[in-house]
Design a protein around this nucleic acid. Structure first.
Length: 160
DNA sequence: GCCAACGTTGGC
DNA sequence: GCCAACGTTGGC
């Protein structure tokens, strides 16, 4: 099992939106970056865990955890002229863009802000924290994943 | 709103 | 293949 971080702007699609879906599941469509596409197509597997990150939010934060319920398959919005993500150059016989399906596992409440993450020494090499990082689907190491969950537990404990 | 960092496009 | 111009991302 591998770990990932998926970015979404909450005013477009939030973790709350995912929780409200039938079966709390959605297709992660609309990714139009080749590096992110390669991860979705080739690397993300059923059972992998995902941090759901809110970008362009106040504050930017990890808002929840999801699991992958379907591995990479062609993104149907690329072929839909009505979609904002329509790509007329993508050939259905050789699709350019891929999606996976994810299901919400649980919210992280309150969310863990980017600034909190920046204070964790274990995350010094994390892609999310790299200046200028824009990758919307990014791998998370097991050490990074565990450090973030440990911070969440420590926070709960401190509140009691 | 600003702007740095980044990815893509297209002329050459 | 180079690289300038452009559009986008995303924190602040």
């Amino acid at each position: 099992m591998a770990y990932w971080l998926f970015k979404s702007e909450p005013n477009v699609y939030s973790f709350g939106n995912l929780m409200s879906e039938p079966d709390r599941t959605t297709g992660w469509d609309g990714v139009r970056n080749y590096q992110a596409r390669n991860f979705l197509r080739d690397r993300v597997q059923v059972g992998d865990r995902v941090f759901f990150y809110h970008s362009n939010a106040d504050p930017p934060c990890i808002a929840g955890i999801a699991e992958v319920v379907r591995a990479g398959h062609p993104d149907p919005t690329a072929f839909d002229p009505e979609s904002d993500h329509h790509d007329p150059k993508s050939d259905p016989d050789s699709p350019t863009w891929y999606q996976v399906a994810i299901r919400a596992v649980r919210a992280i409440e309150p969310p863990i802000g980017l600034r909190e993450l920046g204070g964790l020494p274990e995350l010094a090499g994390m892609e999310l924290l790299r200046k200028g990082s824009r990758l919307s689907v990014q791998p998370v190491t097991e050490a990074e994943w565990n450090a973030i969950l440990a911070m969440e537990r420590a926070r709960k404990k401190a509140k009691r």
